[in-house]
Amino acid sequence: MEENLPPGFRFHPTDEELITHYLCRKVSDTGFTSKAVVDVDLNKCEPWDLPAKASMGEKEWYFFSLRDRKYPTGLRTNRATEAGYWKTTGKDKEIYRSGVLVGMKKTLVFYKGRAPKGEKSNWVMHEYRLENKQPFTPAKVYHIHKML
């Protein structure tokens, strides 16, 4: 795929572009595919395995993933893998397009082991979600992730 791109090309979208040009399209059309952003199950992948699954990227990699609920009837998101878990850090950042709130960005850090005694790693990921105005979310909720 990268061999067809012009020299010097880098996939480096803004937060707003990730939300409006990629995540909105994925949510509205589950058949949507992108050469730059691939589908993965983050609960079945360790962070060190993700770069090899990406279609492009050198220091940043992009993925679509479906939200996995921690409990079938609950709202909490499951962010555990076999080797550890993704822990949220800081507060969510609002993403705007032309003054309109279109999405949110959450920062996650990977911890090896199990909470609360997990060991912090250097793996960081940004999770983007659409601004959901409906009180009830659909069964399939996609996020876009940017691994750093």
Rank of each mutant, 00 (worst) to 15 (best):
A52L: 06
R97N: 13
L148C: 01
R67G: 04
G113Y: 12
P116W: 02
A52E: 02
E82M: 03
L101C: 04
L42E: 00
T77W: 06
V100E: 09
S34C: 08
R76H: 07
Y62M: 04
C45Y: 14
T14V: 04
A80G: 07
K35F: 00
Q134H: 11
W123S: 08
V100L: 07
E82S: 00
H145Y: 14
E3K: 09
A80N: 13
P51I: 15
H21S: 10
K70G: 03
H145L: 06
Q134T: 12
L5I: 08
V109F: 10
N132C: 13
K117D: 14
T20R: 15
N78K: 15
K53W: 06
G57S: 05
T20A: 15
A54R: 10
E3Q: 09
K35G: 02
W48Q: 04
D49R: 02
Y142F: 12
Q134F: 01
Y22W: 06
L18S: 07
V109E: 01
V124L: 14
D29A: 11
G31F: 01
S121Y: 09
L23P: 01
T14L: 07
K146I: 08
A36G: 07
D68S: 14
T73I: 01
L18R: 11
M1A: 00
M125Y: 06
R129P: 06
G103Q: 04
Y128H: 05
V37D: 01
K117G: 08
D68P: 06
L66I: 05
F9S: 00
K140P: 04
L108A: 07
Y85I: 02
L130R: 06
T30L: 14
R69D: 02
K87R: 12
D29S: 15
K53Q: 10
S28N: 08
E60S: 14
T33H: 03
W86H: 00
T30I: 15
R76F: 06
P72Q: 11
H21G: 11
F64D: 03
K120D: 07
H21M: 14
E46R: 07
Y71E: 14
V100R: 14
V40S: 03
A54H: 07
R129G: 15
K44S: 08
K133E: 09
N43I: 05
R25T: 10
A80L: 15
K91T: 10
N132G: 01
R97E: 01
E2C: 04
T30A: 11
L148D: 04
E82R: 06
E127T: 03
K59V: 14
M104D: 10
M56K: 03
E58H: 10
R69S: 08
D39Y: 09
F9H: 12
